[in-house]
């Protein structure tokens, strides 16, 4: 078992004829994901590695029963692409696009949360349930099937910690990159809740970083609502205030959003926080016994 992405996933890739879209759609398919359709306006009737292309998401869903969309379109068109995916009726939308204006995402988010659908991202590496299916851009070779869930704001750090786990023989149920922007469709709490309800996830690793207060909120959620144990990591102790550290969301404003504040909040709720990626994997091993 797993969360979000599994053998029942039927994926439609928005922006499939672009360079990145074609490359990753093909790779997702090669990993075993059921990629049923692609969308690029004006290119209906073509195919990418045997994946049929449609003009609109709605056409694709009607023809193929796609239930998951992945957005690869450029930032200025991404909000429109997400709205289109929402209206097509798919259950899950994953947005890889980096650099979407924050106000666009504020409107998308508000609209999305009034309905039942799920958005992961934007500016995220996607979701992988190792050995079953992947939706996104993650390097699949670092993941192994298993029973530890992982949720992260950062892409490369997700790969680093997953590899540390795999190297110790600890496999993953599902790995979710929620994205590094100030407004993302799914928060730590949304994903932690899904892991907590998943009978095949024994422990969750939460990988946070400076900026915002989502890790602090997650700390309270873990203490009050979760039975599945959580081990955490926070990046950015050396980050100076007021400077954006790469991710649009990774910025310390005033006294809030620091790595230390997040670590303190998590530890106050009994969550162990590793000081480096290797130690995180060691804490997981210790906790699993």
């Amino acid at each position: 078992m797993s969360i979000l992405v599994d053998a029942s996933t039927r994926l439609v890739v928005q922006g499939i004829t672009g360079r990145e879209g074609a490359f990753h759609a093909t790779r997702n398919k090669a990993y075993g994901t059921n990629v049923v359709a692609g969308v690029t306006p004006g290119k209906a009737g073509q195919d990418v590695d045997g994946i049929p292309v449609f003009n609109t998401v709605r056409d694709a869903v009607e023809a193929t029963d796609a239930n998951t969309a992945m957005v690869f379109v450029p930032p200025r068109f991404a909000a429109d692409a997400i709205y289109e995916a929402i209206e097509s009726g798919v259950d899950l939308i994953t947005c890889i696009t980096e650099g979407i204006p924050a106000h666009d995402m504020l409107r998308v988010y508000t609209h999305l949360r009034r309905g039942p659908q799920t958005l992961v991202g934007p500016n995220c590496p996607g979701v992988i349930s190792p050995g079953i299916a992947t939706v996104g851009i993650m390097p699949t070779q670092v993941f192994t099937p298993g029973r530890v869930g992982l949720v992260s704001r950062s892409g490369t750090l997700t790969y680093q910690i997953s590899k540390e786990l795999s190297d110790m023989g600890i496999g993953q149920s599902t790995v979710v990159g929620i994205g590094g922007d100030p407004v993302v469709g799914s928060s730590f709490i949304d994903i932690l809740a899904r892991f907590d309800a998943d009978p095949d996830t024994d422990l969750v690793v939460m990988v946070g970083e400076i900026g915002g207060a989502e890790e602090e909120k997650a700390a309270d959620f873990i203490a009050e609502n979760m039975t599945t144990p959580v081990v955490a990591y926070i990046a950015g102790f050396q980050a100076p205030p007021g400077k954006q550290m790469g991710h649009a969301g990774a910025i310390i404003t005033g006294s809030s959003g620091t790595a230390q504040a997040k670590k303190d909040a998590l530890e106050a709720q009994g969550v162990r926080v590793g000081t480096n990626p290797t130690e995180v994997a060691e804490l997981v091993r210790e906790r699993l016994g």
Binding site: I137, L157, Q160, V207, A235, Q238, M245, G246, A250, N276
Partner: peptide, 30 residues
Amino acid sequence: LGNGAGLVMSTLDVVALAGGRPANFLDAGG
């Protein structure tokens, strides 16, 4: 010099834990 914002932030932290002082954050990008 690293790739990806999270990994680079983590690298700065690990350098500091090793007793050093990082000179910069530099993300060469995905």
